[in-house]
Design a protein around this nucleic acid. Structure first.
Lengths: 212, 212
DNA sequence: TTCCGTGTAACCTGATTGAGGTATGGCACA
DNA sequence: TGTGCCATACCTCAATCAGGTTACACGGAA
């Protein structure tokens, strides 16, 4: 039996195009399509589609809000965003909301069929520029890591890591198999190097600057 | 002129296969390949390739370390990881290190040519399961934010925020214009609500679960 | 070979924090 | 009008922490 699909898209012309594009293959069946998301929850519950194609810019409830509503009760339906927006805000909000894929409309005719198969296989179809944005977003932390080098020794880093997880000096001593006085010594050197004067300052700095 | 490519891969057979696969098209030229990364920096500087194909599991310096070394001096060369590892740790470490794409070896014969074109077009080629891991990783934060409601009162949140910034009880008291004993009371209630028994545990939990 | 950095360990003093309590005034809601 | 929640404040004792100092073993660099 074919994969069932529901489309949310306010542009009637595009809604038609998508439907006919997908009807070219027997594997997919567009069981319904809607111009807005005012009743998105009940529509999803009623039709139980395998895949949802979701526009972002729609009158009333936008596509990102709609994804949030769907994810409140359904974690399994595969949702592919289909939009013209390729800016950070829209992409990341859609991903945070729980979308599984993000396809720019300009690639739809070429890539939609592949994207649906991909998302059903457990992938996350993304237009190239979107994929690059996503991984650039992940890479930001490294730059920070790169320039905050406080010259901590290996042992001091271990100590700081354990401290940052909420361990007391006594617990750190037990886990590192050293005496509590040695832990003190390490901690004192860490304070000197990080220019802090207390546990919390050290932990706060360690976590915020991703030293751990 | 063709796209220049360098390959780092310890398996001689696979190194050959990749080279011959890429020689099928005139667009790509494998200008050199190496079985390890011991001289990765000077090799990249010397050959100035457009694209690097990088294995992860190699003797000596592994692929992720090699990516870090390359990114210290070259942010522009496009690096595609080519590995058998599809676990979180390897994927995210490679991305953090500065890889532009991540292809599982089982898809290499089908997807390598596309992936290289994709990465040169500003995309981020990823095998489907990798893409899904990356976006799942982005989606984690919301779930946390949603369910960590410890019912802190407004004053308790303020206190926790100040604590998390490295303030002592005394400093918090001064900033909130209350006595140090009141700060104690708030902190005790916070400990009860967060189920912790010390400053560092509270701060660690607060920062990690974004309560502040 | 000597010296320095690192990791280890110990001791001391004074300050801060944790864990029990108890108590009071204000405010909202029933 | 009482009950509950919040913010405030105080007390005591034990535990933990900060800062200072000293010491020793080990390995690598000068």
């Amino acid at each position: 039996m074919p994969v069932t699909i529901i489309i949310f898209e306010d542009n009637a012309h595009l809604r038609e195009s998508l439907t006919s594009l997908l009807s070219l293959t027997d594997d997919y069946s567009v069981i319904n399509s809607f111009p807005d998301c005012s009743k998105v929850a009940e529509q999803i519950k009623r039709y139980q589609p395998d895949v949802v194609l979701m526009d972002i810019d729609m009158p009333g409830i936008n596509g990102i809000e709609a994804v949030k509503k769907i994810r409140e009760f359904d974690k399994k339906v595969q949702i592919i965003m289909l939009t013209v927006f390729d800016d950070n805000t829209h992409v990341f909000e859609a991903m945070y909301a729980g979308a599984n894929g993000y396809l720019l409309k300009k690639y739809v005719s070429d890539k939609l069929i592949d994207a649906i198969r991909d998302v059903l296989d457990g992938g996350a179809p993304m237009s190239p520029s979107i994929a690059r944005m996503v991984i650039s977003n992940m890479q930001q932390p490294i730059h920070k890591v790169a320039d905050n080098d406080y010259q901590l020794t290996a042992r001091e880093k271990e100590t700081l890591q354990l401290l940052s997880k909420g361990n007391s000096f006594k617990m750190i001593a037990a886990q590192l198999n050293i005496s509590i006085d040695t832990v003190r010594t390490h901690i004192k050197r860490i304070y000197d190097k990080l220019h802090v004067r207390s546990q919390i300052e050290a932990v706060s700095k360690a976590i915020n600057e991703r030293l751990v």
